[in-house]
Design a binder for these strands. Sequence first.
DNA 1: GTCTATATAGCGATAGAC
DNA 2: GTCTATCGCTATATAGAC
Lengths: 226, 226
Amino acid sequence: MFKTEPSTDKGEQTRRHIFDCALELFRENGFDATTMQEIALRADVAKSAAYYYFPGKEAIIQAYYEAVQDEQERVCRRIFAGSGNLKARLAAAMHAKFDLAKEDRKLLGVVFRYTGEPEHPLSCLGAGTEEIRRRSIGVFREAIAGERLPKDLDQLLPVALWSLQMGLLILFLYDRSEGQRRTRRLADGALELTLKLLALAKLPVLKPVRTKVLSLLREADLLPEG
Amino acid sequence: MFKTEPSTDKGEQTRRHIFDCALELFRENGFDATTMQEIALRADVAKSAAYYYFPGKEAIIQAYYEAVQDEQERVCRRIFAGSGNLKARLAAAMHAKFDLAKEDRKLLGVVFRYTGEPEHPLSCLGAGTEEIRRRSIGVFREAIAGERLPKDLDQLLPVALWSLQMGLLILFLYDRSEGQRRTRRLADGALELTLKLLALAKLPVLKPVRTKVLSLLREADLLPEG
DNA sequence: GTCTATATAGCGATAGAC
DNA sequence: GTCTATCGCTATATAGAC
């Protein structure tokens, strides 16, 4: 990956300090309007010190997204330990990320900047972000862990829910309703629908459809273990 | 929009010439590796002449995407005039864009660069690209024009098909199979499934689901005429 | 390993020529 | 309206100091 993990205490502190200052500036003036120069200035280090820890501004955003992911996992693990209700667990996973990102919607948008560029190390669907994506999908895997589903659905659901979350995150960024309640309602509705479809998927009429969907996705290499 | 429409013949020629040279360079060296300086150099104009016609490199990509859209419409109109088969029309619309972009997959990725930034003029979901998006959806509207569907589905389908196309386009960029046949098969399968679901949507069992989906999307402002 | 000083090259804005 | 010359600012690589 991209990170230059500092190996000393002092380095760790400097890195953290640069990171904090950068986020401050991003929040004050926006991502594009902030320069590495300004970040270094506020952190009281030379510009090249900032580059030593982060290859560029985008790497700082990536670190920010990883922090959000850490926090989501912490929150979800606590909730999953308590509740046995599937719908509540899924809703918690979805809304946790919204809650964490709601003050930083402009920053979050940058995470999607290289979605269309497979080779870019920061492409949110590319090889460079595989680990964080695996963790992000893992949250949903844990959410449905107790459900005893057929094996194919057990593979399909976490990826499907993660895709849903990514799509909703984009809508979230465009949602100008207060507290983004429009997107939150859509998320709730989509989850309800997912659960309904999950039940329907077992009906005889829909059996061929279910098989078709799964084989299509498998062929397109969109499911784990090809 | 972003365009500086030249009003003289000479201006139109210069613009076109800069555009052609830029595309050449993008194809040779990639988008990010190409500078406005180099573009101007190849086009035999001053750098600021390039900036006079295009506010930046991204604007050139936007113009490229508009050219692709023009061509897709031309191709589709010809096909739609001939064939009455719904599935063939939809497949034609999907594959037309793939065919046009297949040599320029790296360039196309840049079109998605500002997807997560609503205010950016080049955000492919933002206000600045509304016209081209309307046209892109319109292709699917024309494809289903002869179908006499219930009014709600008539509104839903074009937007749904356009979303499908956008999603498939991203997979298309990541698809390293020869001729991107993996994505093309997925597209065919997804269309088949869509038509199947369209038929199923009329079954009594699924009536509440259909209503739910439509009201959800309407609430989230994802359908025309709110 | 941590960080600074320095150097090159591109971006994009401006004033103004034609 | 079309285009040029020029300028200040930024990104980022490199050599090397501590």
